[in-house]
């Protein structure tokens, strides 16, 4: 049975905190670009973007990155990168500080694929990573710069992130 481990309010707060940290560690956020990994990573990017706009009155570009165009049926945790082919980005990332956003950080393979896609689209000045949940079990040397919540999990467990934009409510469940 699914067990809710993070409710809507906690998720809201985590995203706000990530935003504060982004501001704190980037003196001047002018050259920032947010790139969300589809599907829920995009919502994470938009929520950070709207917070930055409210706080600093600066509009940061947001791009969507679809790295699994053919594998929509699979749940996020099971993503296999062998078939990944990225669609082109619709914004210029050359010499920008790209913050890549996703909902769950797990093996790190998705992120690697996303970075590949980014590099093929241009030459960013820097890439950082912001995730809502870090659940451990990395298979690649990848580390998130901004983490909403660290959740220790066993590999058997599944993390299910629900976001209002697509799932009607905000919550994170473990099953």
């Amino acid at each position: 049975m699914a067990k809710e481990i993070i409710d809507g309010q906690t998720m809201t707060r985590a995203l706000t905190r990530i935003t504060y940290e982004i501001i704190e560690r980037n003196k001047g956020i002018d050259d920032l670009v947010l790139v969300g990994i589809k599907t829920r990573g995009v919502f994470v990017a938009h929520r950070i973007e709207s917070r930055l706009k409210q706080l600093e009155n600066i509009k940061i570009p947001v791009a969507e990155l679809d790295i699994t165009p053919y594998r929509d049926d699979k749940t996020h945790d099971e993503k296999d990168i062998t078939n990944i082919k990225a669609e082109p980005l619709n914004i210029d990332i050359n010499n920008k500080h790209v913050i890549l956003t996703d909902d769950v950080l797990y093996t790190g393979r998705t992120i690697r694929a996303a970075m590949d896609a980014l590099m093929s689209a241009g030459r960013p000045k820097k890439i950082s990573l912001a995730v809502l949940v870090d659940r451990g079990h990395r298979e690649l040397p990848i580390r998130a710069d901004f983490v909403g919540k660290n959740i220790p999990t066993s590999q058997k467990e599944k993390i299910k992130v629900s976001m209002k934009e697509i799932d009607g409510e905000d919550k994170i469940e473990i099953e």
């Binding site: 504060y20 501001i23 704190e24 560690r25 003196k27 706080l55 600093e56």
Partner: peptide
């Protein structure tokens, strides 16, 4: 400082946070 909270009724600043110091 960035303004983090405001009073809805009269717009008074109710919370601040430094941009790069904790």
């Amino acid at each position: 400082f960035i303004v983090t909270n405001i009073c809805v009724a009269d717009g008074t600043i109710e919370g601040i946070r430094h941009e790069y110091l904790p």
